[in-house]
Computed example of a mutant assay.
Amino acid sequence: MSGEIETRLAELGVTLPDAPAPAANYVPFVVAGDMVYVSGQISMADGQMIKGKLGADMDTATAAAAARHCAIALLAQLKAACGGEIDRLERVVKLTGFVNSTPEFGEQPAVVNGASDFLVEALGDKGRHARSAVSAASLPFGVAVEIEGIFQIRS
């Protein structure tokens, strides 16, 4: 049976995918007490990487949509960290967003808004968080966005 968060996600037309496996020698998340640290999730949709460089071959709106996909992957990892019980989420604490962009591009916050806005829309006040949005000269596999997250959960 779906809980409150998955019901809200369904209302938004979102079904959480299976949590992606790590691509190297690291774990997808670490649970420490009531905190969950989720490794960076790259921009993917329908099993395909969303690639691009802001300021060169991708616009801000397209990258913000890619950031939204990163947020969905973060929630999938969080669900796995909670043993399938995503309603244990107390709040999103912090996101760090990395945007593959040229030195001249300065709209990194607008790109990461795609993730932030989605989390607030899906989770209400639990989704409000501290945040950093920074430029990266490149990201793994040429993806447009990578976002990591810190979450507080009920034990």
Rank of each mutant, 00 (worst) to 15 (best):
M1T: 13
M1H: 14
G3I: 09
L9Y: 00
E11L: 01
G13D: 00
P20S: 00
P20W: 00
A23K: 11
Y26K: 02
G33W: 07
D34V: 14
V38I: 15
S39M: 09
Q41A: 13
A45G: 01
Q48R: 07
I50V: 14
K51F: 05
G52K: 02
G52Q: 03
M58A: 12
T60G: 10
A66W: 07
C70F: 09
A73D: 08
A73C: 06
L75Q: 04
L75G: 02
L75Y: 05
L75P: 02
L78A: 03
C82H: 09
E85C: 12
I86L: 12
R88I: 14
R88T: 13
L89F: 09
E90Q: 15
V93D: 12
L95P: 04
P103D: 12
E104Y: 11
E104A: 15
F105M: 13
G106I: 12
E107L: 15
V111F: 11
S116R: 13
F118K: 01
F118I: 03
L119T: 03
A122R: 04
A122E: 02
D125G: 00
K126I: 05
K126H: 02
K126W: 01
G127R: 05
H129L: 06
A130E: 11
R131E: 11
A133D: 14
L139P: 04
V143I: 06
V143A: 02
V145Y: 01
E146K: 02
E148C: 14
G149H: 05
Q152W: 01
I153D: 08
